[in-house]
Nucleic acid binder design. Sequence first.
DNA 1: CGGATTTGACCAGCGC
DNA 2: GCGCTGGTCAAATCCG
Length: 486
Amino acid sequence: MDSARSPPPPTIQFPLNLGRGGADQAAENANDKGKAAVDEMDFFSEKKERSSGGGCGGACSDLYTTEPSSISDFNVNTELLLLTANNGGDGGTSSNSDCRLKSEVGVLKSKLERMNSENERLKEMLNHAKNKYNGLQMHLQTIIQEQQHKGVADQEGKISFHGNGPPNANDISSFEEDGPTAGGEGNQSPQQKFLSHSASPNSVDQATEATIRKARVSVRAWCEGPMMTDGCQWRKYGQKIAKGNPCPRAYYRCTMAVGCPVRKQVQRCAEDKSILVTTYEGHHNHPLPPTAMAMASTTSSAARMLLSGSMPSADGLMNSSFLARTLLPCSSNLATISTSAPFPTVTLDLTTPLNPLQLPQPPMPFPAPPATALLPQLLGQALYNQSQFSGLQMSQEMDQNNHQLQNLHSSMNQGQHYNQFNETSSNSIQPSDPSFAAALAAAITSIIGGSSTNNGGNNNNNNNNNDDNNNNSSNDLNGSSFYVNR
DNA sequence: CGGATTTGACCAGCGC
DNA sequence: GCGCTGGTCAAATCCG
Ligand SMILES: [Zn+2]
């Protein structure tokens, strides 16, 4: 959020990393003069072009659309000059420093081109996602309208649609199962609101819950304790030995408010018993503390994505799996939705190690800038997409979703379920880590699917406003990935 | 003593 | 219909 508001970060990080990478590359090229000499002339000409106002400006402006190209140029050139001055003290000749300069410029240019192409690819993916999302919303709206007119009788005669009618495009998320709607008049689940505005709660609960699939959100996390600390109060009401897993499955229900329908199942992973799998079901009918909001918001967002992608159309699958493919372009198998089970399930995997495809991290001169710079861009793009539908509370939503991530991470740490990467992580964003992209996926999922809930669930804003207290936590959800099991 | 936990019983859904 | 399984209930028990 801050980075989106204040231009400096990209410009600062970029030259810094360029400088670091440039120094490395300069050292490498100095040891390999013959190879550098081959491209000498090309690099030099390119540098000329750039210094005359071309090259980097275009690439940088693509990466950081809000940045004037002249600033980037200035930063890059400044860095190079500094390097030249430092290297000049070694007693080398001017041609030697020129050679280094040329090598640096060439490497940097290639990097910029690479980044530019990847940026373009990401843009295309985002546009594709946007289109899919648009179509998906239209599709869901159509289905809802069809159900409103004729599908009611299939469920139960006592279930009726009336009152405010079906949600429109902006209210689509009110159809969803999970959502931290809290307090006040929002006690009835969105699903219940949608299916029946007047039927007696008992009949509606039983009838609708029997006929409508329940969305579940499963969270896998490293946890030594018996249960994750997610900010809610739970009472255990059962325990079973599930088939295929020697570890017992514990059943909890929320006791923060009488009648809260939220339940969760806690079970250790059979393969790795240090992994705790917590499955949430339902949504709270009461206000949540900030620590609980983190998990509730994230899981509800995942449920939203699941339900938006659980429609029988291919768009649904695309909508869900797209996020992983798009936001985690270097990874695969991060998004699946499971509808084969009685309940569609989203899995938020906070245990996934570094992605194998990204694990052998190359000594990229500047691994940080791409994702770091793309974060506000992606968020902004997602918000922009969303704004095309709601046009409401863009900045507020961005705040809320960022807070969701931060709070989730902080609450996870409170729950002592670190993964192996937290120990090596700093408080800074580590965009090269796939977990960052996963967090990004969660954030954008929240944004894309959550604006309606945020708008409709304004009762939670009182809690969200307290999230600033937790902003000292790190921004990265290290080692997390976003599964949507289908 | 009140609330939380444990644990066996019970129920519903599903496949054969 | 029967058995299996997942999920829930509720009496017994534990604990602060
Ligand atoms: Zn609750």
